[in-house]
Amino acid sequence: MITIKRLLASAALAMLGALSLVQAAGQGNIAPASAAPKFGASLDGVAATDTPQPLPALPAAIKARADALFVNAEDVGQTRALFILRDGEPIYERYAAGFGPETKLISWSMAKSITAVLTGFLVADGQLALDGPAPVAAWQRSGDPRGAITLKHLLHMSAGLEHVENGDPIWQGDTVAMLLGGGAPDMAGFAEAKPAAAQPGEIFNYSSATSVILSDILADTLTPSRSPAARRDAMREFIAGRLVEPLGMTSLTPEFDASGTMIGGSIMHATARDYARFGEFLRNHGVVNGQRLLPESWMDFMLSPSANDGGYGGHIWLNRKRPAGAQPALWPDRGPNDLFACIGHQGQYIIVSPSQRVTIVRLGVTKGEQFPALRRHLADLTAAL
């Protein structure tokens, strides 16, 4: 079990840009056919069992695009894992040296999309309301403008709270203060204490603290206890029953702060295959093995552009144009309009292209100046598919 202390130390290195590449990505190896899981084409989602099955031969053009993510490490950074599915079946799986099918890798902000799905379950259960006031006790005092913040505002990153995701230098940002500084023992308390800087729904402000607020709401809904252990247990049980077991995501490991709040904006771990299972769940609009787990209406919400940033939906990135001056997240000038992605710090991606019937997982370490090249390579790969 990875302890929170070790996780936060790792986060510090990563966020400060001091995390070195472990091996040259070009030294990766193709996973042996015997290690490849079978994801039956007849299934609506990724199968829960890993039955050996040889991978099909790929057209040279597609294989070259995929291999380029390992070979061109100087351009795109280290690719540690690349896993591609078509129609739910693996067609490519490769890892850098020292990594493999059983290696758990950090999600960073891909965790936000998992948090959104967990929120959707409780909305579907009638325990939370998307358009109702967010049930945060600190915001319920008379005259507090934060009392007007809804779950939808939080999921659209438009709550209007004062938050600086990445400071200049980075350690002066609120995210580092929350994960590593004074806010670390009670991350939700830190995030929920932020004052209003705009009206709810007025501006888009990407914020890992916002996702921690959602995690706090989830825990409060699942248990009345303030015991950190009780909150962790309630969340783990909920995730196991509603997500891990139905999807077969047995490696998924959420992390928690000392108050028992899941760090739902940035720190979860899973294997590339299990991230792919989550991607397939989204590609199939919340259906697994013919059973609908998440309402179609929730998937429609998550995948609809938010009012203040067309490239962002409900805690997930869309292949749409973003406002002028905003950094591109995907490649709307090239890829299908229905393509979307869970994206995390340092180049973690779960890319889903429903019209192409494709899910791509790329995990690794990419630095700031390498991101344009990484996006270009990923766009080339999706185009080849």
Rank of each mutant, 00 (worst) to 15 (best):
M1F: 09
M1D: 10
I4V: 14
G17S: 05
L21T: 03
Q23S: 13
A35W: 08
A35C: 13
S42I: 12
D50A: 09
A60V: 14
D67W: 09
L69H: 08
F70N: 06
A73C: 07
E74M: 09
V76E: 10
Q78S: 14
R80I: 08
A96E: 10
G98E: 05
G98R: 11
S107A: 11
A116K: 01
T119Y: 04
A129S: 14
V136D: 06
I149C: 08
L154G: 00
D168Q: 15
G181M: 11
A197M: 08
Q199T: 09
S207H: 04
T210P: 07
V212M: 00
T221I: 07
E237M: 13
F238K: 00
P254R: 07
G260H: 03
M268Y: 13
A270Y: 01
E280Y: 03
F281P: 09
F281G: 06
N284S: 13
W298F: 07
M302S: 07
S306W: 04
H315P: 01
I316F: 03
W317F: 11
N319Q: 10
R320Q: 14
R322G: 10
A329Y: 02
P332C: 08
F340Q: 01
F340P: 02
C342W: 02
Q348I: 08
V352Q: 00
E369V: 15
Q370T: 12
F371Y: 13
A373G: 10
T382P: 00
A384M: 07
